[in-house]
Every structure is written in structure tokens, then in C-alpha cells.
Design a protein around this nucleic acid. Sequence first.
DNA 1: ATCGTACGCAAACACTGTTCGCGAACACCG
DNA 2: CGGTGTTCGCGAACAGTGTTTGCGTACGAT
Lengths: 223, 223
Amino acid sequence: MAGQREPVIWLRPEQAPVGRPAERSRAEITAAAVELADREGLDAVSMRRLAAALGTGAASLYRYVATRDDLLDLMIDRTAGEYRLPVPSGDWQADLLEIAHQARQIMRRHPWLPVLVVTRPTLGPHGTDLLEHLLDVLADHPAEAAHKLEAFAVLNALTALFVQNELAAADPSAQRQSAFLSHVATAGTHPRISALLADPQLERNSRDRFATVLTRALTGVLG
Amino acid sequence: MAGQREPVIWLRPEQAPVGRPAERSRAEITAAAVELADREGLDAVSMRRLAAALGTGAASLYRYVATRDDLLDLMIDRTAGEYRLPVPSGDWQADLLEIAHQARQIMRRHPWLPVLVVTRPTLGPHGTDLLEHLLDVLADHPAEAAHKLEAFAVLNALTALFVQNELAAADPSAQRQSAFLSHVATAGTHPRISALLADPQLERNSRDRFATVLTRALTGVLG
DNA sequence: ATCGTACGCAAACACTGTTCGCGAACACCG
DNA sequence: CGGTGTTCGCGAACAGTGTTTGCGTACGAT
């Protein structure tokens, strides 16, 4: 039994205690990566392009990060640091909604975040701070501990889903996805879909829907 | 206004009416891709490896598919064809749960599916069949049409989330993710997390939780 | 001043998705 | 039966990708 080979990045020391000191820091590199992703999308964050943005060589990044996935983890946790966590008010529904509201804002600020959140659920230092805060909000709630964890996951996932839809609706390149739906509607098969697309009121006051859907889903999870 | 350049793959003819006939079909290629992904993971589905599995050249695949993303869409819709859709029973809760149950089985059969589902929501021919079925199940439900669409999205996303957690729990390589959580717990900060990990009953009878959480979330979405 | 160590990084490796160009194969048509 | 028009199969090449290796360099401590 060899055990796990390398611990997660948060448990690895950032700088060696001896030898030539590093010229940069993980935080610095993470900030540059986030900014690059914000500006040109997640695919633009390649080791070479990121290194170029930092004015260094690609191989140098591997002194700070074992792999590109580590870099993504750092980026995720950095955004988790953007939460402003107030003291619990006593109204856990309102407090959870406040968290979700901030999550939505953060994800809208970083359009690459929703995909990463649902793809690789990562808990770094800031992520654990957030989880601690959520558990604090739910301290007096009678639900089991496991259910509170589920609520955390559901809150993140549903928020990511919502923001992804919001962003896709704004991006015209993804709108041709619905071309096939209209095609199906006019084809005559699938009468329910035809009726649905004919429905004149398909607007979305997404702000309110977000709050109500999430609240109900969370109360469901928490029993 | 140039409009969208290329329509979605479902609206492009599979074979040209004239010229040399193709030696393969989209279905054949899709089947090989799914089998390869089942066996060796989604990353193994590269154009070259897939072509090799089919006994052909990589460039040949581009006669059937404009891009690799098209291939992923085909794979997604192929799994949507694995549903067995019974006639609605009149109990919409039970019928939705049946759909979710099948979704979970399908995603467990194809471990690469959850990520794809939450990453690129795609509706192909089989996907629209499934949506039509869901709308049929909810035909007598008084909710707005938009809310039924939300229910569809939430059902898919939450199922994917659950299966992803199930698979991660079974895979020992992802278990070192929680090493940091234990580290935080023993560190003394974050007392709620410490208490949570000390809680002796953190098992998950995931089957039941899946049903109850999903039911409650869906009833929440549908109002 | 020397030593030990970690850092910065050019170059190389093994890939990836995608495009180009061309020969071969077929269906049709006169 | 012999063109002819069109598509198909695909080797080769292009522009990237993440990552490893090796080595000169810069620093802190002795």
C-alpha cells in the first residue's frame, strides 16, 4: 500500500526554506490566471500564455504548481475569497440566499467559474471558510450534518446552472442550439414541445426565479 | 447580418446524395466513441485514437463530424436514447422519479456523462424525445411552461451531481481531496467543520437521499 | 569564499484538434 | 461503355498543448 502519492496543493509548502528565493508567489500567478481567464476565456489560460503574461517562461510555472489542474484549483479558491461573509442573522433562509446571491455575482464576474465549479468541486482555504460560514448559518437547524453538506453542494451547483443559462442566453453563438428545437417544433412530432415554443410568455425574470427555485430546493434538501 | 455560420449537427445531412458513398455512419462512429469513453475515459476519445479504434485515419472522421465537440454532442444524445419511456401513469411525481432513476443508471453506465451533461447541455433527437416525455408527464400540471423547462434542467443537473459524487466516493484517487478537510478540522479554526467530521454518522444511503432530495427540489421548482 | 540548494527556463517529447491536397471510388448520364 | 462530377479516405503538415529534463544561475547559510 503506497498511499496517495502527492497531497493536495493546499498542503504543500509554497516556498522551500532554503535555496534561491522564488521571484513570484502562488497568489501572484493565480491572480494573473484569473485575470487572463476573465479577459479571454479559460482556454486562453495555457501554461505558455500565462507565463508570457507574467513575463516568464512556461517551465517556471511548475515551480509553483505541480500541474495545470492545480492552477485551476487555485483559481477556484481565489474566487471563493471574494465572498463577504456577514455574521448570521438568525434567519437561515435569508442568510443562505445572501450566500447564493453573492455566488451568482461572483460567477457572473468570472464566466469560466460555473463550468469549473460543477466539473471539479474543490475546497481550498477560502472554500472551507465559506463552508464554515454556511454551517454557522445552519447551526440551529435540526437537519443532519450530511444534509447540510448536500445543501452546500446543491447551492453551488444550482447557482452555477443558473448563471450558465444566463450567460448562454446572452451569447448569440449558443443561440443556434435552439434552432434544432424550433425545427422539432415545426416538424409536427413532439406536440408538447411545439405548444411550449408557441407559448408567448417565455420570458424569464431570472432574478426572482433564481431566489424562489433555490430556496425551495434548499428547504427540500434540509427536510 | 451573416447569421449563424453552421447549423447544429442534427440539421446537417449525414451523407451527400451524390459521389462516393461513405464507408461508415455517424451512428457507428458514435457507438465506437461511447465504448472507448466507457472503457478508458473521455480523454481517451481523441480523433486519432477513435479513428484507430475504427480502423481508419484521423482526418476521415471529419467527413462525419465538423469538430470534436460535434462528436461529444452525438455521444450525449446517444445516451439519451437509452431511456425506456413508459406512458405517463397520472402520478407525475412517480413518473419524474422514474426518469431520474433511469438517468442515474445511464450516468453510472457512462461515467463520463455527468461532466458532459452539466458542461454542455445539448438536446438532440433523443433528448427532445425525453423532453417531450417529461412535458407529457407534466401535461396536467398547472405550472408555467418555463418552470417545466427548469424542472427538466434541474433534474438533469442534480442527477449528474449525485452520480458524480457517487463515482468520486468510489474512486480512491479523489479521496485525497478530503485530506485537506481533515487538516482544517484538526487545525482548530473552523469549529463547525471539526464537529461535522467528528460526527460518527456520516454514511450515505445515497439511493434514498437521491429520491427525496430530487423530489423536493422538483416540487419546489414546479411551485 | 565556499557550499548546498532551489530557481528560471530553453529545448525537447508526446500528444492534441484541425486543414490541405490528392488519389481513389462510386453514381449517373450520354 | 466511357466519361464526368462529386464525395470519400487519409498521409502529411500546422499550430498549438501539458509536462520533463538538464543546466546555468542566484541566493542564504556556514
